[in-house]
C-alpha cells in the first residue's frame, strides 16, 4: 500500500521528465527491504552509505536467511541511520553502545542473526572498548564499520581513524594523532572473520557480508567510504566520484595479508581483502559446554 502511495507521489515527476507511462516503472527490487515512507534518506550525495546499505541488503537476500530473524543495531552518526531505513527489527541505540545492545539481543535470543552497522567514531572512539571485548568473547554478531575517517554527522571532526596530517574542523593544523588500523585491531582482539573493502568493491563487499551473515562468531567488515561533504572537501579529495576513482587506482587486493600492513595513509594505497577467516567456539558455545560439564560432573571446579 505504501508503495502505491510513493508511486502516486513520484508518478507525475517520472512521467513528465522521463516520458514514461504508468506501468513502465515499479518498485525497486530492494524496496521490500526498506521501510516505506523513509526515503529520501539523509545522506549527502557522494556518500558511501547508500552503497554500503545496498550491499548489505543484497547479501541478506542472497544469504537466504529469514528476514524476520535478522536484526540490525546501530549507534549514533550518519551510519547510525542505517537501522532506521531497513525493514527489519532495527535498533538505533546510544552513541558507541550498539555492540553491548547487540550482545544482549543475541544472547537473549540465539535464533537471531544480529548485525551492528555503525561508523568509525561510534565503534572505535566512544565504543572502542565494547568492540575489543565483544571480539574477545567471540559473541556471535557481525560488525560492519563504515569508515569515512571523520565525524560526519556533527560536521567533520577528527576521529580515531582520521589519517595522520588530515584536515578536519578540529584539526585545523592537521591531525597529529596516529590512526587506528581497524582490521589489525579486530584480529588482535579475536575476531574470527575480518575483511576490508571500499565502496567501489560492491560485489566483493556483498560476498563478504554474506559470508559474515552465515558465519558463527564475531565477524568484522570495514568499509572504506567517501565523505565528500565533510572530509573530502577539507582534504581536497574531490567528489564522491573522484574518491571512487582513487579507490580504483589505489586499492590493492591481498587476501590473508598480515593486517599489520593494512595501515592507511593519506594519499597512499588501500590494502583490501579478507584478512582472517577462522573457526572458534563462540561465547554461547563455551558457556553451554562449560556449564553442562560442571552440572553433569564432567569437568570444571565443582563447588
Amino acid at each position: 500500500m505504501d508503495i502505491e502511495r510513493s508511486r502516486d507521489r513520484f508518478a507525475p515527476h517520472y512521467l513528465e521528465h522521463e516520458k514514461w507511462k504508468l506501468g513502465d516503472y515499479g518498485a525497486h527490487p530492494i524496496d521490500k527491504y526498506l521501510r516505506p515512507g523513509r526515503i529520501p534518506h539523509i545522506w549527502c550525495s557522494g556518500c558511501g552509505l547508500g552503497i554500503s546499505m545496498t550491499c548489505f541488503i543484497s547479501a541478506l537476500e542472497e544469504s537466504g536467511l529469514p528476514l524476520d530473524k535478522n536484526c540490525v543495531v546501530s549507534g549514533i552518526g550518519c551510519t547510525g541511520r542505517v537501522a532506521g531505513y531497513l525493514k527489519l527489527d532495527s535498533y538505533h541505540t546510544t552513541h558507541g553502545r550498539p555492540i553491548p545492545f547487540a550482545t544482549g539481543l543475541k544472547l537473549g535470543n540465539p535464533e537471531l542473526t544480529v548485525t551492528v552497522f555503525s561508523g568509525d567514531g561510534d565503534l572505535f572512539a566512544i565504543g572502542g572498548n565494547h568492540f575489543i571485548h565483544a571480539a574477545r568473547r567471540n559473541v556471535d554478531i557481525n560488525v560492519i564499520c563504515v569508515n569515512n575517517f571523520n565525524y560526519g554527522m556533527t560536521g567533520g571532526q577528527v576521529g580515531p581513524t582520521t589519517h595522520l596530517k588530515a584536515r578536519t574542523t578540529t584539526t585545523p593544523y592537521g591531525n597529529f594523532e596516529q590512526a587506528f588500523n581497524l582490521p589489525h585491531v579486530a584480529v588482535a582482539s579475536g575476531a574470527v572473520y575480518v575483511a576490508r573493502w571500499t565502496t567501489l568493491h560492491a560485489r566483493r563487499l556483498k560476498a563478504s557480508i554474506k559470508e559474515a551473515l552465515l558465519k558463527k562468531g564475531f565477524c568484522f567488515i570495514e568499509i572504506i567510504a567517501p565523505c565528500p561533504t565533510a572530509y573530502g572537501r577539507r582534504n581536497r579529495l574531490g567528489t564522491g566520484l573522484n574518491e571512487m576513482k582513487y579507490y580504483k587506482e589505489h586499492s590493492v587486493i591481498r587476501h590473508n595479508a598480515d593486517p599489520a600492513e593494512a595501515e592507511l595513509v593519506l594519499g597512499g594505497d588501500i590494502l583490501v581483502g579478507k584478512f582472517r577467516d577462522e573457526e572458534k567456539p563462540t561465547f554461547l558455545d563455551m558457556q553451554k559446554e562449560g556449564t553442562l560439564d560442571v552440572m553433569s560432573g564432567k569437568g570444571g571446579s565443582k563447588k
Binding site: 543495531v73 527489527d89 535498533y91 541505540t93 546510544t94 558507541g96 553502545r97 555492540i99 553491548p100 545492545f101 547487540a102 550482545t103 544482549g104 539481543l105 543475541k106 544472547l107 537473549g108 535470543n109 537471531l112 572498548n129 565494547h130 571485548h133
Partner: peptide, 13 residues
C-alpha cells in the same frame, strides 16, 4: 555502560 546496554538488548529479545 555495556551492562546497561546489554540488558536493554536482551529485553528486546
Amino acid at each position: 555502560l555495556a551492562s546497561m546496554g546489554a540488558i536493554l538488548g536482551a529485553s528486546w529479545a
